[in-house]
Design a protein around this nucleic acid. Structure first.
Lengths: 189, 189
DNA sequence: AAGAACGTTAATTATTTTTTTAACAAACTG
DNA sequence: CAGTTTGTTAAAAAAATAATTAACGTTCTT
């Protein structure tokens, strides 16, 4: 009888976890992480260190799926390989501090966004500049080239800002500017 | 002969735009926006107000695709419907200020993340609390329930922080904390 | 050194997502 | 008010993504 209750209780705990795992997965889906990777993350979040085999058992999926899922999460900087003494299988651990999750995840994305777009802007402006110097071209075309050049130039401050935001998030400075707890007033105010 | 040069020049301008449109699309892909929606955004970014037919012509895709693409971008808060006098067709405009793009896009996502997870945590904790009060259960199970409850409780500050970050981004306060231009020193420093 | 355990890669299959064509509904025009 | 034009919804086709099984290479064990 106690076993029956105990069994039901364990199911309830698992259900509670699943509720949260699902919403974590949906959350990550918002940012373009697939639901299954999100579910894997959520599972690791509650479970702690896991081997690929444990993940397979827990999620009822194939091992290669776990392997690729883990790598994807590593790419997002939210899962790390751990070294567990005397354990032959590789173990992985999910970042359980959501502040660090946020830092790792977004600083990576933002850095990439800035690098990617600044690079394409650089190339585009180079081409446009060559046009502007060709005096044979009709004024209208040169104006158009100049105009696009300017639009691109004016977008640069955003990417520089994004890089600073990323740095602020990486360094933790952002948590001074916007503190964890509201009562933790900004010292500078 | 001038026409030839002019034609080539226009192609070069288009190519320059495409370079940037592609990287904008890749950027948006980073955050889970499909490449085609990203390309549509990029096109609108350079083009300004556009009708669905113009988009179709520009991208060489079907009109329903444009319709759904535009709606998706509207859902992300980065495209708005515009009212153009004497124009029967609907027109849409992309947010060209990347700071506003950032604000609109991420505040929406972050608000949703917080709401979603706080809600699931609420439900999960309710279930766990009921277990904790059942004194018949083995100590071990009650401990487990309590432990999961605590983990969830401790994650809440993150979501509250995320809501404040979102508010800060929505209000523009973030741009005081992390200024557009580095030389624009924080007044409070 | 041979065999087993483990993880990854490759190829195939399955599933999901996206795109298109076709049908429809609403709003405008004369 | 009949006929267009415009935009969206629905159904079908196409394309892209994800998952599985099978094969492989590496490392550990004995």
């Amino acid at each position: 009888m106690a076993d029956f209750h105990e069994e039901k209780a364990r199911e309830t705990i698992d259900h509670a976890k699943e509720l949260v795992i699902d919403s974590l997965a949906e959350t990550m889906d918002l940012y373009g992480v697939t639901r299954s990777a999100g579910t894997l993350y959520g599972t690791m979040y509650f479970e702690g260190d896991m081997t690929l085999d444990q993940m397979r058992d827990e999620l009822g999926m194939s091992k290669p799926s776990m392997s690729t899922g883990v790598r994807k999460l590593q790419d997002f900087n939210v899962v790390k390989k751990t070294f567990k003494k005397g354990e032959r299988k590789h173990t992985y651990v999910a970042e359980r501090d959501f502040f660090k999750f946020f830092s790792n995840f977004f600083s990576k994305k933002w850095d990439r966004e800035a690098a990617l777009n600044l690079e394409s802007i650089r190339h585009a402006q180079k081409e446009l500049l060559e046009l502007s110097s060709q005096e044979k071209l009709p004024e209208e075309v040169r104006e158009e080239a100049k105009s696009v050049y300017t639009i691109l130039e004016e977008s640069k401050p955003y990417y520089y800002w994004l890089q600073r935001l990323s740095a602020s998030v990486k360094s933790g400075e952002i948590f001074d500017l916007i503190p964890f707890y509201p009562e933790e007033q900004d010292k500078n105010e």
